[in-house]
Structure formats: structure tokens, C-alpha cells
Write a protein that binds this DNA or RNA. Structure first.
Lengths: 230, 230
DNA sequence: GTCTATAACGAGATAGAC
DNA sequence: GTCTATCTCGTTATAGAC
């Protein structure tokens, strides 16, 4: 009995994975807005109605792909971070940023899915936020460590952003000074600007030495947050 | 005779504009990858083959929309810049950045077309680069003016980026020091990271006071390039 | 010469009856 | 779960109106 259930559960997991793999292939070929349950089913030799046992709608399949992408990116960033846990905050910051870029270059279509144009008619549910936050948590962590060991230089904070900074601290950057929270959010967005421009072709004929260029750019972002240059 | 030609030319311009308007409407509703010549024709009461007199292919229509978007953005940025030509470089930098953001918020789908995920199967031709460069030229201009009037503080340049910086100077940043060219390119990409994150929903529950947040962020970008805080 | 309309192609999506 | 009839699409060839 339990073996039957186990086999059934295993089969379900396998089919779910096969569906997502095929969907990812279509994502790469046609773009997220053209993702079609029917086409996925056809490619897998299933009938479209069978897919609804695994994903109740196209949007649910999309959501699963988005969460997978955020988690895959998050794991890559966390792995890179673990590799340098003993290094100083700035080196860890750079390692996380380089992992983000590396993952993006290796998974361009999944990157576009989560950080590119929104899919028309699709709104991401709350379920995605936890996975989406993983990279940001690592970046916040490096700043927090630098703050705790006293090596962090608090950046200036415009008067008009004091309240906003305090709200940020309360919401997701506990312990940190408001100025650092504000700087972190800017640097976070700017990091993805660098990655997106490279990935989406805006650096063509503009940046050639992309590895060094990126590393130095994210180093400067870290300095802007207040991490020490050691 | 010339009036006939004029009428014909005028009609052609009007029809071309109507096609692009309708295409933009579909862009907003369905996304670029689903843009369909037939649907555009149907909505305009034309037959699909008639469209080929105006755009030799679907990709050419897309290209026209992309160029229009870059030009519309460029004009907005140039207009904002003209409004503050007499101000210092940093104020002009901020004005240009705010114009970019303002245009993006007002034209989200056209922004997604030029700075969002690439359209699968479409490659932008060289024809787009001139229009695409207009904002960047304004930003470079502010740095050049600051450099000429002596108010620019040259940012540090990593050893590994010297050659790259010199190439950038030769390619598009004549007169400027290599360190400034490199910093400009980073700031340029980072600017669009800020705009994209706001527009694509990543700031939901993260940034609330978006006007002030953006202004202060792009001010910091300007300082990173070396513009003086006056 | 400039335009629009008809018709058709091959490919693919879709809805519903069975 | 299968099949079919009917849609969509980009694109081309052709014919005729202005």
C-alpha cells in the first residue's frame, strides 16, 4: 500500500518535472507569452486535458516556472556565498553578484522570465516572493555583517528618505541603519541593471571586457552601500 | 502634379501612422511576441496583404516601433535637458534621468519593448542604434561639460579596465578620461536597472517613496561618475 | 507607379462532438 | 482520449482600380 502510494507520488513528481522541462524549452523558443499548455502536452505525447491534473491553468505552470527560476538563481548565489563565507563582506558581496551574473548568462530565458518584461495578463501571486528574496537576503546579510563588525561606513542619507529608510529597516533590514537600507535597495536594482543590459544586448559594441567590467561595477556598488575595501 | 504627389505622400504617412498606432495598442495588450500583422490589418479594416506596402514584414514593423520608442524617449530626455541647459552638469544629469523614468512610467509597454526581454526570433538591425544612443549621448554630454569646466572629479579606475576604458573613449566618449567613460557606462546601465525594477514590479513592498528614492539614486550615480555636488 | 483586394500556401492553434 | 472542422498566422502571387 505505502509502496503503491510511493510509486504514484514518484510518478507524479517525474511527470511534473517533465512538464516543466518541456515548458522551459518552449519558453526559450517562443517566449513566456506564447507558452501553451496544449503544445507542452503534444510534445510530451499527452493529451492537453491530462496536464490539468498537474497544473490547474497556464498561469499556475508559469508561476511554477518562475518560482523554480528564483530558486535556481537563489541556490547558485547561496552556493557562491558558501564558498567564501570566511572572506570579508565585500568579497562575499562580489561573489554573490558574480553568481547572479553567471546564472543569468547560463539561463537567459529563465532570467528574462523573472527579471524581464512582465507577461501580459499574468500577475505573479504572493507565493513567489519567498524565492524571489533569496539573493536580496544574501546582499543584506553582507551589509549586516559589516555593520556588526564595525567595518561598515554609513553612506549619507537624503533628508527626504529618512522615513522611507526607517520603514525599509523595519520591513526587511532589521538592525541596519536606514541609510544602509536605502543604499542596499538602490545597489540591488543597479546590479540587475548591469546584468540585464549585458544579457539583453545593450552592451553590444559598448562593453567588451565584460567579466572585469562587471566585477569592478559591483565592487563600486558595494562601496556605495558602505562595505569596506579590504 | 506636385499636389497629387503631396496628397499621396500624406496619405501614405497617415496610413503608416495608423498601422503603428494600432500595433502599439496590440503591443500593450498582448506583448511584442504576439504582435500580428493580420490582427492589425483586421482592426484597421484593411486586408493583411495591403500592409506589406508599408512594412515588408512583421519584423520591419517591429523595428519601426522600436525606433519610434527610442526616439520618443530620446525626445523626452532632450526636452528635459533643454529645460535646464543653464544648470550645472549634476542637475542636468538628474533631469535627464528623471525624464527617462517619467517617459517609462508613461509608456510602459514601449519601454518593455526596448529595454525588456528580447523578442524571441527577432534581432534588431543596425538601424536602431542611432535612436537608441540619444539618452546616452546626453549623459555623456553632462560629463564632458563637467570635465571641460574643471568640476569633474575623475573616479578611480581598476588596472584591468584601462585598455577597455581607452577603447570606450575612442569609440564614443571622445575627450573624456577612460575612468569616466567606464563609470559612465556602469551608471547608464544602473539607471535602467532602477527604472526597470520600478516598472516591472520589483519595488512592490520594497520602495514606496519612489520619486525621492529615484532622484537620490541617480544623484549618487552622477557622483560616481565624478560630477560635482553643487 | 501606387495602392488594395482576392486567393492561396503551409503551418499551427482551438473548440467541441464523439 | 481521439478526431475533425474551423480558426489563426506570415507570406506570396496575381489581378485590377486609381
Amino acid at each position: 500500500m505505502s509502496t503503491t502510494q510511493g510509486a504514484r507520488a514518484r510518478a507524479r513528481i517525474e511527470v511534473t518535472a517533465a512538464i516543466k522541462d518541456e515548458a522551459r524549452r518552449q519558453l526559450a523558443a517562443e517566449g513566456a507569452s506564447k507558452l501553451s499548455l496544449r503544445a507542452v502536452a503534444r510534445e510530451l505525447g499527452m493529451v492537453s486535458s491530462a496536464l490539468y491534473r498537474y497544473f490547474p491553468s497556464r498561469d499556475d505552470l508559469l508561476t511554477a516556472l518562475i518560482i523554480d527560476a528564483y530558486d535556481s538563481l537563489g541556490e547558485a548565489a547561496e552556493a557562491a556565498h558558501s564558498g567564501v563565507v570566511d572572506a570579508g563582506p565585500l568579497r562575499r558581496w562580489v561573489a554573490v553578484c558574480e553568481a547572479v551574473r553567471g546564472w543569468a548568462l547560463g539561463h537567459p530565458h529563465e532570467y528574462a522570465l523573472i527579471y524581464g518584461s512582465p507577461v501580459p495578463g499574468y500577475v505573479a501571486p504572493e507565493t513567489t516572493v519567498e524565492s524571489a528574496a533569496r539573493v536580496a537576503l544574501l546582499l543584506i546579510g553582507t551589509a549586516r555583517d559589516a555593520y556588526r563588525d564595525g567595518s561598515l561606513t554609513e553612506p549619507p542619507l537624503a533628508a527626504g528618505l529618512r522615513v522611507e529608510g526607517e520603514r525599509m529597516v523595519a520591513d526587511f533590514a532589521d538592525d541596519l541603519p536606514p541609510a544602509v537600507a536605502v543604499a542596499l535597495v538602490s545597489a540591488w536594482a543597479e546590479l540587475y541593471g548591469l546584468v540585464s543590459f549585458e544579457l539583453f544586448g545593450q552592451f553590444r559594441r559598448v562593453v567588451e571586457e565584460r567579466d572585469v567590467f562587471f566585477r569592478e561595477a559591483v565592487r563600486r556598488l558595494a562601496l556605495g552601500v558602505g562595505l569596506a575595501d579590504v
